[in-house]
Simulated assay, not measured.
Amino acid sequence: MLSLKLPRLLSMEQVPQVFHEQGILFGYRHPQSSATACLLSLFQMTNETLNIWTHLLPFWFFSWRFVSTLQVTDILHDSYSWPLLVYMGASCLFPLASSCAHTFSSMSRNARHICYFLDYGAVNLFSLGCAIAYSAYVFPDTLVSTTFHDYYLTLAVLNTIISIWLSCYSRFFEIQKPGLCKMLRVLAFAFPYTWDSLPILFRVFLFAGESAENEATLYHQKHVAVTLLASFFYSAHLPERLAPGRFDYIGHSHQLFHVCVILATHMQMEAILLDKTLRKEWLLTHGRPLLFAQIAGAMLLCLIFSLSNIAYFSAALYRIPEPELHKKET
């Protein structure tokens, strides 16, 4: 019979510091794993296995939802649905990028950084996709077609450009200043999310009465609550920080963060679909639908700046001497 030899796992002391995760003592893959070994690790219980599967399986679910929506949409003539399609496409991209980043991040030090640069780029494209959908379907009645609404998407593009730069830049402090690294990365994602969510926050807290009959509001509330929970797990490193070694494989904070992110995205998608359907007549009468040039231009700008930043910071990894970038590993 054919036997499959899975890669040997290592303890925290056996891998360079750049691979260390707070509170995770064992289950690390070899820091110079081959691509084949990385793929095999999907079927081996490591400290990354559930990080991969908690985004890989939702990728297929969101892809099914996306394809199902495409099949019932007249893409060429139904311009009202274009923002939804952009959002749903971005919803497929970010879990796929995340699962790939976690899968191949153990190939080398630089490969680890580059994998997460790409992950951050996908997250920022998703953030912009959310802003496009919110601009089209979610704005409270009172703010539709106001100056704030007119400039909302432009500033969302600017935020994503700043976010991808800041999140990639933060990785250069991972060893020397881990606290600063974490603060910059949280800020890089928190600010665009807060800006994107302003229409929801205004609708829930300031203009709740005008949309009380809209059942999408409840999904929006749940989405915000679960997103805050995800942020807590990402920042706090609980429960593994309180019991190092006990949650190496199952139950550590990054897995819980992934689960919360997927649940929040599902609730967000349901809310956007409801808003798109229930508010269609009113929005088409009182709003200014997004043009193809606006949607395509925003996504293209974000994509160009994201890829440019990823290329720049990836090249910088090879320009900076390794001892300077990882000087605390010895």
Rank of each mutant, 00 (worst) to 15 (best):
W195V: 08
L278V: 11
M267I: 00
E174H: 14
A190T: 15
R241E: 08
S167P: 00
G287S: 14
A190G: 02
F232P: 03
F189L: 08
R185Q: 15
L263H: 08
V157W: 03
A236R: 00
K280T: 02
A236G: 11
R288Q: 13
F189V: 09
L158V: 15
Q176R: 15
H252T: 09
A225R: 03
L274C: 05
P178H: 10
A156L: 01
A208D: 07
G287R: 05
T227I: 07
P199Y: 04
R241Y: 12
V226L: 03
F205L: 13
S163V: 09
E174S: 12
G209Q: 09
L256S: 03
V261I: 15
E174F: 11
D275H: 13
R241A: 12
S253P: 14
V224G: 14
F202K: 08
A271R: 09
V157F: 03
E270K: 11
S231D: 08
L155G: 01
E213L: 10
A188Q: 04
Y169N: 10
I262A: 13
F172A: 00
D248A: 01
I161E: 07
I164T: 13
V157S: 08
C168K: 05
P192E: 08
Y219I: 00
R288S: 10
S231R: 01
I272K: 06
M183T: 10
T146V: 07
L153G: 12
R288D: 01
T147R: 09
L206N: 14
F233K: 07
F191N: 01
L238A: 14
F191I: 11
E270H: 11
V157E: 02
L256Q: 03
H149S: 03
T265Y: 00
R203L: 02
H258K: 03
T146F: 10
F257S: 02
W282P: 14
F189E: 01
V186P: 04
F191G: 00
L273N: 12
F233G: 14
L229Q: 04
T147L: 15
L206H: 13
L158R: 02
A216L: 07
P289Q: 11
L206K: 10
S253H: 11
L206Q: 12
I272D: 05
L155E: 04
P178C: 05
M267V: 01
H220L: 07
K182S: 15
H258N: 15
L218H: 04
S253L: 08
V259I: 15
N214F: 11
W165R: 02
T154C: 06
S211R: 04
F233M: 13
Y219E: 01
R241D: 13
S253F: 09
R171M: 15
W195K: 12
V157G: 09
F232Q: 12
L206P: 05
R246W: 14
T265A: 13
K280M: 06
H220K: 03
I250A: 02
A230N: 10
H149G: 06
E270S: 01
A264S: 15
F207N: 10
Q255N: 08
Y249F: 15
A230L: 11
H220T: 01
L180D: 00
F207E: 05
F191E: 07
L274D: 06
A156S: 15
P239H: 05
T277C: 08
R203S: 13
P289N: 13
P192T: 05
E270T: 12
S197M: 14
R246C: 07
A190H: 04
